[in-house]
Amino acid sequence: MGAASNPALLEVADLAKHFAIRNVWKRRVGWLRALDGVSFSVRRGEILGVVGESGCGKSTLGKTLMGIHRPSAGSIVFEGNEIANISPYESRSLRRHLQYTYQDPGASLDPRWKIGRSLHEPLVIHTDLDHAARDARVRQILHAVGLPESHLDLYPHEVSGGQQRRVGLARILTLQPSLVVLDEPTSGLDVSVQATILNLFLELQKQFDLTYLFISHDLSVVRMICHRVAVMYLGRIVEMGDTETVFARPAHPYTRSLLAAIPDIGGKRITDDFWLEGEPPNPGNLPSGCRFRTRCPIADAGCAGQEPTLQATDPTRSVACWKAEATS
């Protein structure tokens, strides 16, 4: 993969986001550690998948990178600049090339604005371009996402849901971002449409030289399009590495259970042999040591002591598990 030699576009170190848990009298009774020491880097031109179940902190991660949440600790270096914990005003110009899409980017269009106006707006806010220059760029991008120019004069309700999604994507691309955080971009899509949208992501990535942080709970999609993948559990990355390595030889017991839970048509039925028991513990009250140990089939007394950190098992993958060596 050509991305391997590229420099890091985004460097995240020990990022944490803790939310206060308050009782009815607004008194703080504990901390919910939604992100608890997350470190990774994204190279230019790469697609990094972030997977995990609900409550694992993957969306908090995306939102903290975007400055929607203020990080509790840690650093975020984007294009060589530190963007964690600086004021929104200062970070505005630094974050211009960092964009975020919600689950349905079409839903963030103003229903009372024509599509053309929605596409001009980010350029008006962030650039000094005159109307003609803005118009040229808007038309170019509209073409890239596969929409006719006549759509500029339509309202969002006049186009189909799939086209709204494309307009939402076009809106993000007008600012020529280098990194796009895609937060669950395929959830709620029918499979017959999903492939088309994923192909569009890949085409746009090539055409605009984009880097994606692809947040998803759908492992089969992540496997298809991501170069590397980070698996999160309760606010921490438990395993990270090349997609092929992680999917072919998962080292962390949690990754193994996630992979085992994906329905595999033609394969063994999970209703016959799925083994993971229980549900994730309350994130406000985590177990000591490894946070997966309460559900882990291979945990022993040693796992309750210290929390494992990410250790490289091979050149392309690292895992946070005390027993990784013994099992991989």
Partner: peptide, 21 residues
């Protein structure tokens, strides 16, 4: 057949069904 083919898979790549419902 097309619905089964549109499931993400390493061997087939990404294949949707053209058109809309």
């Amino acid at each position: 057949r097309k619905l089964l083919d549109s499931l993400p898979s390493r061997d087939r790549g990404l294949r949707g069904i053209p058109g809309e419902i």
